[in-house]
């Protein structure tokens, strides 16, 4: 009885610490992006990272499965590490006119939840984290965009035990994108 209850407290404590660790990770990531430390941001990514944002569609509510595009369909982007590196490299050329001069960007993440932990919170190797994002961009003079949506991340521990982003799936709450481009990393 006593043993069981101790281990249950330990498990809850481990989950809490894990959530804090990953929350810190998300907040660090937001800072790196907003401070334009893109090379350091790339260091947070797993070699097998996938980074996708499907399109959202208006369909009958009974057809909810088709309300966003799926793997194999068109999306806003479907990146791997090499494409993400290319984006960062393009920004560094100084000739990527859509971000020259650079935009002012803030990433807000909230509603953070651990959706699954494998194999367990005491020895986590892979964690699925859900959150909402609000990304604000202001550019040149009066050009302003606000993107809001839901994000599901999978973070994997590397051999040194550091969390690296393995999968990021973003559901933007816009049907017609009300911005001229998506030069911002989410």
């Amino acid at each position: 009885m006593t043993t069981a209850s101790t281990s249950s407290v330990d498990a809850r404590l481990a989950t809490l610490l894990l959530k804090d660790e990953l929350t810190e990770r998300l907040h660090l990531e937001a800072d790196l992006l907003d401070e334009q430390r893109f090379d350091e941001w790339l260091e947070l990514l797993d070699d097998d990272v996938t980074y996708t944002m499907p399109l959202r569609l208006n369909v009958h509510h009974s057809d909810a499965d088709r309300a966003s595009t799926k793997e194999g369909d068109v999306s806003w982007f479907e990146d791997d590490l090499s494409t993400l590196r290319m984006r960062v490299e393009q920004l560094a050329t100084g000739e990527h006119w859509a971000e020259e001069p650079r935009s002012r960007v803030s990433h807000l993440v909230s509603n953070i939840r651990l959706l699954s932990v494998a194999p367990n919170p005491m020895a986590p190797e892979m964690v699925e984290v859900g959150c909402r994002f609000l990304v604000y961009r202001n550019r040149v003079a009066d050009e302003t965009d606000i993107w809001v949506g839901r994000r599901t991340d999978t973070w994997r521990a590397d051999t040194q035990g550091h969390w690296r982003l393995l999968r990021r799936h973003l559901l933007l709450d816009q049907g017609v994108l009300m911005a001229k481009n998506l030069t911002v990393l989410f």
Binding site: L55, D73, G175, V176, A179
Partner: peptide, 12 residues
């Protein structure tokens, strides 16, 4: 056609 049409607004 791959499923999904990208639609977006530009100020041009």
């Amino acid at each position: 056609a791959l499923r999904g049409v990208q639609k977006w607004r530009i100020k041009a």
